[in-house]
Amino acid sequence: MGERTVEFEVLRYNPEKDAAPHFQRYSVKCREEWVVLDALNHIKESVDPTLSYRWSCHMAVCGSCGMMVNGEPKLACKSFLRDYPGLIRVEPLRHFPVERDLVTVIDDFVAKLARVKPFLIPQPGAAQAGTGEYAQTPAQLKRYKQFTLCINCMLCYAACPEYGLIPEYIGPAVIALGHRWNEDSRDGGRAQRQEELAATNGVWDCSFVGACSEVCPEHVDPAAAIQQVKIKSTIDWYTEHLMPWLNK
């Protein structure tokens, strides 16, 4: 496999030096099989040590290296140069404040994640019975498994125009993770999570653009989770208001 020279335009922003972000051009010799992250590492090591970005695992599981590559939210470790014949423009993930260069401020996501109680809330009574393992069939596992695969990379937030327009929106990944626990046969915490999930800034801020699922590198399909929560919340509302005899 050969090498070729690739042109990069990388968004730079150092709050101590720059009034506003600007693009910097790098022209680097890259190996054909490299991903964008390899090229950034090469730039940092050999061209410009002041470039800042996050990365770690290089196998699409730690979720650190989310960034905009030619306008699309991508994991830099899974964006192959062979898929980008021309200039490659690298920017920090959209919709998040830029701390420095490609590093964004993700406090908002982290705080929202905690709000949906993404942990097992035992079913009243049943769970305390023993200290052994819960039984869960492969079918019950399959029901929620997909939603456990979220690596918190936040590409879905960068793709979601609703999140861009309504910063209070709790967002695709957080809803998918809340839904993951709701769908787990061992869990009994759905009512508590509904306070956040079914709220105005929960699923109802979503207008089903579907971009979250298109950009998800782990095929989690947050859009599916959101619509499923919408349907269940709607049924909740009808049973509560129109069929009150069904409540207990």
Binding site: Q136, T137, P138, Y144, T148, D184
Partner: peptide
Amino acid sequence: IQLERWGCPWSREANGSV
């Protein structure tokens, strides 16, 4: 087992055991 009780999605046997 503690991790199981915290909800870790361990792969399962057909009978529901880990």
